[in-house]
Design a protein around this nucleic acid. Sequence first.
DNA 1: ATATAAATTTAGACAAAACTAAATAATTGT
DNA 2: ACAATTATTTAGTTTTGTCTAAATTTATAT
Lengths: 219, 219
Amino acid sequence: MTHSEENYLKAIYHLGSNQSKAVATNSIAEQMETKPSSVTDMIKKLSEKKLVNYRKYQGVTLTEKGKSAALGIVRKHRLWEVFLVDKLQFSWDEVHELAEQLEHIESEILVDRLDEYLGFPKYDPHGDPIPSREGQLKKTDKRLLTEVSLHMPGICVGVKDSSAAFLKFLDKNSIALGHEIVVLDKEEFDGSLYIEIDKKKMHISNQIASNLYIQVTEE
Amino acid sequence: MTHSEENYLKAIYHLGSNQSKAVATNSIAEQMETKPSSVTDMIKKLSEKKLVNYRKYQGVTLTEKGKSAALGIVRKHRLWEVFLVDKLQFSWDEVHELAEQLEHIESEILVDRLDEYLGFPKYDPHGDPIPSREGQLKKTDKRLLTEVSLHMPGICVGVKDSSAAFLKFLDKNSIALGHEIVVLDKEEFDGSLYIEIDKKKMHISNQIASNLYIQVTEE
DNA sequence: ATATAAATTTAGACAAAACTAAATAATTGT
DNA sequence: ACAATTATTTAGTTTTGTCTAAATTTATAT
């Protein structure tokens, strides 16, 4: 499997995992910053290899084989991200591009050793679940902070807006993944929230809150 | 710089570092398991980029720019090897192919962070020196264990007698390539040595010692 | 319902990196 | 010295992944 093939599979996986609908050629082209005609070419190739289901003009879906391959790449990507953040002191907004390269390193054993070395993490630094060796994903019941009820404890597991600017803001205010968050009160006037994070009380705007994903730890 | 270009530079570096003579097209082809005509093609390309000096039919040498690039790749290769052995528990003979992939990951910062994380190692698991960020190489010198001075640390890098009997003996006494060895004392009477290998003290005969190659790692 | 717009595919071209086969230069042995 | 051998380069082809431009299919709007 070439790097390019892997990148297409990953793109199709990311675009298709939410809906059960087929993924459009154009959306793949946009995601990969390439031309639709190039996408068509690659889709044909992947189709011949039984990695995607394809009918002309009808978009693509991953076959079981394709999905399994895509999950393998996602697994590698997210494990390397954990490595970069936990071991090499990168911050969570610096690791994506590096992981894009590292995810293509071919070796089952390496991935498993890395997994073990990192302590079998279940989530990457952005709060996204890491597929198991068998391609199983932990379910995430993550909600936006704005949708969490008062006094319901949860853990900060992700961001909706992953722009460097937003991530930098969070860093500055020591809001980090893994920290426990409770909403203490809501300001009806502007939707801002009084929260407690990591035992520190804060007041954050609705705009911030609506871009933070929380894993609710009690029903 | 493409992976292929990097591989050619590395091959030319390895073939040319011993002699000051130009490297022959055929030897590059042999090293890279490719055809001489392919080598000529690539050499022209590298020559246009001022990475090698090339005159038709006269072989190639690296320019300063090319040498610096080659050393950068060697640095990455050897640092990743240390990572795989020290952190992920691979053995010295399993890491080469993986490092061949990892050496192409592009990121100055990553390499520096890795270097720091590994404690700025000076030698890889095979006893080969790791170039500094500036491309400086520690000198190496490989000797028989019997010719190493007391308390001079080195790495076990090879055997003179490669008979099954000898290798079996080494295995039984957990003397393996890549292990650090220090000679603690010599027995004048029979030339046997008291050594410390991998933090374990041992007493070995002169016959054993005179069949083990050591890479001395300090002046 | 059908004209127009949007999405997708086809056809043909290109660059990178490899190859084969043929031509040419350098080296070697007598 | 020069014929034979070996090393190297050239010319032309292939594969992969991309592109542009044109053709075709599907979706949309009045």
